[in-house]
Structure formats: C-alpha cells, structure tokens
Write a protein that binds this DNA or RNA. Structure first.
Lengths: 339, 339
DNA sequence: CTGAAAGCGCTAACAT
DNA sequence: ATGTTAGCGCTTTCAG
C-alpha cells in the first residue's frame, strides 16, 4: 500500500501528547481537554490518518463489522435490506459483510457461527426465512453473538427481532377485495413451513370471516412463492366449478403467474378476475396490468434492525429492547376492480 | 463472546510443537512434516479453533476482505455480481464487504480510498458505471490498492479489468431482427455518458450497416435505462410517419416500457411490432409477451474478476494478467417475430 | 486530565 | 523441518 502508513504514534509525536490521549480522542472519550482534542483532531486531519481497524479490533475486541445472513432468492428484497442496513452502518461507522447460506444444510449453524467467529463480527442480522430457524438463534445466543432477526412474528425477545405485521396487511387486502364486491376469493399460500405463509393466510382468513364470507378450503391452495407455482395454483382455482372472482396470491411472483394463467384461460384481468399480490416488488409496477399489492417497508425494517443491533453491541439495553414492529400497507393498482 | 477463546498457543501446547509450526499449517506452508500437519489439523478440528482474522491481518498485513464498489440501481445485477464474487470468496477464504456509493459525489475517490484503507481491504471489485471512472482507478493504482473493474471495453490493463463484449451481443440482436425480415428498426440507447451505451449502439449500427440497412438518425433515440424513458422513447419512435417494425431497447426495463407504449397505441407485440431488450433480467421472463433479450454472463464475469483480483493479491502475475472477456448471447422469446 | 507499559493473537525473520 | 522472538497498531489497566 502506501509508502509509510502514519500510525497513532506519529500523531502522538506531533501533538506532543501520549498515544493514550490520541486513543481517547479517536474513541470520543470525554476525558480530554478541549484544546488538546482540537489540536489532535487537526493533526489527524492534516495527515489524513485513519486508525487501523484491525489493530483497533484486536485490542478492543471489536471489529466494527456487521454480518447479514440469508438464503433468499428474492434479489430485490435482499438488495433493499442491504441498503437499509448500510445506511445505518454508514452513520455509525460500521461495515457490512454479506453471507448468503444454504438454510437446508445440516451444517448451517456451525457454518454461521464459524463465519462470525472467523471475521470477528460484532453482530449479525438474519433475514427470513433463515431468521425462522430457532436453532441458529439459540446457538448465537449461547455463543454470546449479538443478532437481530427480521420476521413476521414475535419469535424471540424484543431485542432480537424486528417484526413486519404481515397478518394485518393481508387482512387489509381482504378488506379491499370484499369492498370491491368480491365474495368468492381464491388464495395462494407460500410454502407451508414458513411463518409468513401462516401469518398472511391467517390475516386473510380472519378478515373474510369478519365480513361473513369464510372461504372454502378448496379456495385455498398451496404455492411455493414462485412464478410457476402461481400459474399452476391459479389454474387449479380457476377450473373449479364455482371459480373465484378474485385471487389473492401471497406474493408478487405468484400474482404475476396468476395473471399469466388467467390470460391463457381467456380471462381478462381485472374485468373477469381481480388479482393481487404481496411485496410490491419491481414486477408489480411493470406487469400488465399493474398489480395491486402490499408494500412492506423493508428498508425501514432493516434500518431498525441495524440500529437495534448496534444498541445491543454498545450495551444500550433500553434502545435494544425497544419494540420494533412495522405494518405493511396496501398499494392499489390496476389488477383489482369491482366485481 | 465465548468464555475463553482458544488461541494458536493452545493448539501449539496440545500438539507439542511451537506456534510457528501451527502458523505454518494454518497458512498451508509446505515446510511441515506430514505427520505433524495431520496431528495439528486434527487438534484444530477437535477444538473448533478459528484463527483470529484480525490478529492474522495485523501481523500479515492482509485482511482476507474484498470490497465491492458500485452505484447501480439495478438490484438484480448487483445481486448477481455479488453471488459470483461470493462463490469465489468462499472457495478461497475471503469475505465480501459491500459498498454502494454516489458516483456523482465530488468526494467519491477520497471516500473510496478511505473505505479500503479503513477496513484494510485486500482488494476491490468495481462495477459499472463507477468502473468507468478513470480517476478512481488512477487513485487506487497510485495507492497500491488491488482492483478489478467490470466493464464493456478495455479501459485498463488486462489485470485490472474483465470485459463483457456488449458490442458483438448487440450486433447479434441486430442480425436476429434482420433475419426476421425487419429493415426499419428503432433503437433506444442508454444514458449518453456510459460506455455500455456506446458499445451497444455501435454494435447495432455496424451490424445493420453490414446488412445494408443503415438506420436513420431519427430511428435512434436516447433513453435513460429506465422503464418510463423506454415508454417515452418508444412513443417517439412509433409516432414517426414511417414507424419502425421493430424496436431494440438497449436494456430490459426500457423494453418493457416499450411494450407498454405499444399496447397503449393499440399495437400488438410481436404481431405489429417486435421488441427486444438487453440483460435478461427477471422482467424478461415475466413480461407479456416474454422478452427476446441478451443474457450477460454476469455471475461468470464476477467470478473471473474475483479470481483475477485474488491472483493479483497473491502476486500471481500471470493469472492476474490473463485476458478475461465474456460474450453475452441472445435469448429468443415471444416478443420478436417475422415481419 | 494525561502517561507508561502490558497485552490482543498471529506472522515472519532469524536461528537451529 | 521446526523453534524463538520481535513486532503489527491500537486499547486499557494502573499510576500520576
């Protein structure tokens, strides 16, 4: 790299004080005279000095590195989370190390703990669906690793989770459809093991029940959160003797698949069939017709999670324990219409 | 964290050898007896020992951290690159620190160098369009920072760039359209400053010329690589007294915008108008009709770039200097048809 | 409020 | 082929 990196000693030298003092100003310790601090700061600036993060970490047992663990094919979601996390990292002087993994691997937990130990991460943020793995959380807990999970239910202590209220969001979509006059509404779930699948379905069902139109079991089919599964499930719903007038696919990929299936069956959306999704991914605004969907404040969740994580790292328990729950909201577009 | 981290000394203790030897086996030095190595490895495994990356880095002036610098709104692209980079990182024991930035900021270079110095990164991968900034590259060069750029032209020494041959890809799309009988073809460019814009346009123009149908200037309009700009540019092309029978939008977002515009004008795609894009993003397979486009081997480029970067870091000059150029290829779908 | 000095865990000359 | 030991650059008791 550079010819000769300037070190804390150089600064101490020039400032005519001990390294201890320099260290104090670098770490914003209040126990430094104003004059001294100003002088040191100036010298640091003049020399464009950057403390060596490794040395700092080694001595202080802190790396100023956060990790992000996930196994999610949705690039848009990952990217959104990443940006939210980074915006807070930047403010607070942290860097982000990304770590996709295989959530079905036997060695997931070992691998994950290895990752944080190896890189000496100060904490990790875990994205769904990996975040639903309680073993992983347990291992982190036991190992004393700071972590925050992004989830759709309160599956951990307040300081370890940020929640998206998918249930009430799904309910609001049900309200929307009923409000448009739909009574027979098909629903395509996500994979059965996932919490978000259950939450969204429960929200949908409860809302319909409240409106007095409990859905038949045959109006609820199991998808995989994929485009193709959406198309297949939609066909299944639509070939029912008494087909639905609206289909709520529990994510956008499946909703777009549903639109495709409808088109192939000669149905007009939203004329013959209303379709809606969940996520407000890029597909929603680009599809034809554009998709009525639910927007999750993903970036905001990520910001909250990061702030919370850093609060834990800093030992600010109160901040860390603050309850963080965000509520997604409905974005009406062209794909839903009055019956 | 853990009660008592096991260190290299513990291992040395148990193995009955010196730390130097342990260090050697950790770093795969050949100068260790087979028996000794095996024994040490076993103990390391038994104790689940992970060398402290910070201490290692501090002593060896190496962090095993790579950076990725970008300013690109295309989440899919970023995500693809990221996965490619990570796949090589994983094989070679590196971690990835992500760093979005503002390419129009005055302090871009200062900020970027600060980033690598602060985190003591071993090297960085720069994505387009930031990769087209020669100042940045120059500063890295001068600071002795290892870097590799992803680009569409050879704008640096072989060891510092991996190239995607967008020009020939655009040409093959032109061939495709001409092959379908189209002669009057509209073209929507990207933002004028970008290399990829120029390369794709040149490839398109050269190919058409070769086929003896040089496009009118009015058949070439300037877009912004966005959905809306695509729709607007398409309208402009289509309201021409002698409208095109095909439109080549130089990325998928604009191509989808073009399809939307055509629909609004009552044109059938591909019946009345063939449309094609560039990128093979998720939109291409989800749009209606599905989009004929160009697939860039993005992940492969990222892998090459990472391998090259690590070769530089390791001082394996030959590997680092190997010429890396990938050629995107055409993916035919429903949106183009014979005239 | 400030200073001297002992590590943090590992690597790499220099020996053997 | 293996051991000894002096740092790498910073934080942090413990004194002053």
């Amino acid at each position: 790299m550079k010819n000769k990196k300037t070190t804390i000693d150089d600064i101490a030298m020039l400032a005519g004080v001990s390294v201890r003092t320099i260290s104090r100003v670098i770490n914003n310790s209040p126990m430094v005279g104003e004059a001294t601090r100003a002088k040191v700061l100036q010298i640091i600036k003049d020399l464009d000095y950057h403390p060596n993060a490794q040395a700092r970490g080694l001595a202080a047992r802190r790396s100023y590195l956060l990790g992000m663990i996930y196994d999610n094919p949705d690039a848009l979601y990952i990217n959104n989370v990443q940006r939210g996390v980074l915006s807070v990292c930047r403010e607070l002087g942290y860097e982000l190390v990304v770590h996709p993994c295989d959530m079905h691997s036997d060695s997931l937990t070992i691998e994950a703990v290895g990752f944080v130990n190896r890189s000496k991460l100060d904490g990790v943020i875990i994205l769904p669906p990996v975040s639903e793995n309680n073993d992983l959380a347990g291992v982190f807990e036991k190992a004393g690793v700071n972590y925050v999970r992004l989830a759709s239910v309160a599956l951990d202590k307040a300081e370890n989770v940020v929640i998206s209220n998918d249930r009430s969001a799904a309910a609001s979509m049900a309200d929307h459809l009923v409000g448009l006059g739909h009574r027979r509404i098909g629903y395509i779930t996500g994979p059965l093991g996932m919490k978000s699948t259950q939450e969204r379905l429960d929200g949908f069902r409860d809302a319909l029940e409240k409106h007095g139109c409990k859905p038949d079991n045959e109006m609820i089919v199991t998808g995989e959160y994929t485009f193709n599964s959406g198309a297949e499930c939609a066909c299944e719903l639509l070939k029912n003797p008494d087909p639905p007038t609206a289909i709520f696919a529990s994510n956008d990929e499946m909703a777009v698949g549903t639109i495709k299936a409808a088109r192939q069956l000669g149905l007009n959306v939203p004329g013959d069939l209303s379709v809606c999704g969940f996520d407000d991914s890029i597909l929603a605004s680009r599809s034809y017709p554009t998709l009525t969907t639910i927007r999750r404040p993903v970036k905001e969740m990520a910001r909250l999670a990061t702030a919370k994580l850093i609060a834990s790292i800093d030992g600010r328990e109160d901040d860390a324990r603050a309850m963080n729950i965000v509520t997604p909201y409905l974005v009406p577009r062209e794909s839903t219409a009055a019956k």
